[in-house]
Amino acid sequence: MFAYTIRRLLQLIPVLFGMTLLVFFIVHAIPGNPAQVMLGQHATEESVQKLTNELGLNEPWYIQYINYLQNLVTGDLGDSIRTGAPIVEELWPYLAATMELSVVAMIFAVFIGVNAGIISAWFQNKWIDYVAMFVALIGISVPIFWLGLMQQWLFAVELGWFAPTGREDARAPIDPITHFFLIDTLIQGDWDGFVETVRRLVLPATALGTFSGAFIARMTRSSMLEVMRSDYIRTARSKGMKMIKVVYKHALKNSIIPVLTVVGLQMGLLLGGAVLTETIFGWPGIGRYIYDAIQFRDYPVVQSGILIVALFFVLINLCVDLLYSVVDPRIKYK
């Protein structure tokens, strides 16, 4: 297991290297001169030229790339053009906002998805199975941004149950410690703040988690159906074990592996989907941060932001791979 982990980590190196190269090229292919953007439209030609030299933008691409890598290795992600602040310092609140949203969305997706899948498999070809699978089909077909808008309209505008946008009440801002507001409010014993944070999380998290939940439900169902046909399940049943125990204790354990793969993949999708959810719900997360940076031609932010998200994606998938053997002891890594 240890050797396998090390090998997987080593295999990551060329992928990470390729990722930096791809991001570097994409960002450098975005039309426009960053120096011009930084100085504004009324800058003189000399000052633009001077800044271009200072930023090393007239060096050949490989020199620029090597400089970029050198900075990356030392943990320097560059400075934001828009705010002038180092990106490393600026990034965390956005990243934490997206992580909080994605994790809550994933918990929602797994809870709903796995249970819906189990119930569907349990009552195969009964009406409850049809209903669950029809809802799941809608779930994988509905555009996440439309779902978000409809939720916003129904639950925030019409019914007034939730706040339509934002992560915190502007009148009662939350004092950030970790920037995970659920944790921060609990640490500070700010019960009202915690409730408000939950209230604001519900709509974006459910909108974001719906696709994944639906996908997981379909996956769980087919995986469960396969396991339910096996001999040991029949044995357990014939020994008079209660169905609920058979399903949740025996069948689920053996059908969770493919589901786990999907969860890993979906987590990455959530990070991407967050761009849309964050746009609709005014959520100050990393997706929004990158999107705004593209609009503003804030190249360093685009470059670092995309790279960080991709890095998370890769690491999550690695964790999922390593988790397999924990969940299923039959899998041994050599």
């Binding site: 791809l22 989907g273 991709a310």
Partner: peptide
């Protein structure tokens, strides 16, 4: 390529 969230 698959290491990046596709929409991003």
């Amino acid at each position: 390529m698959l290491a990046f969230p596709s929409i991003l």
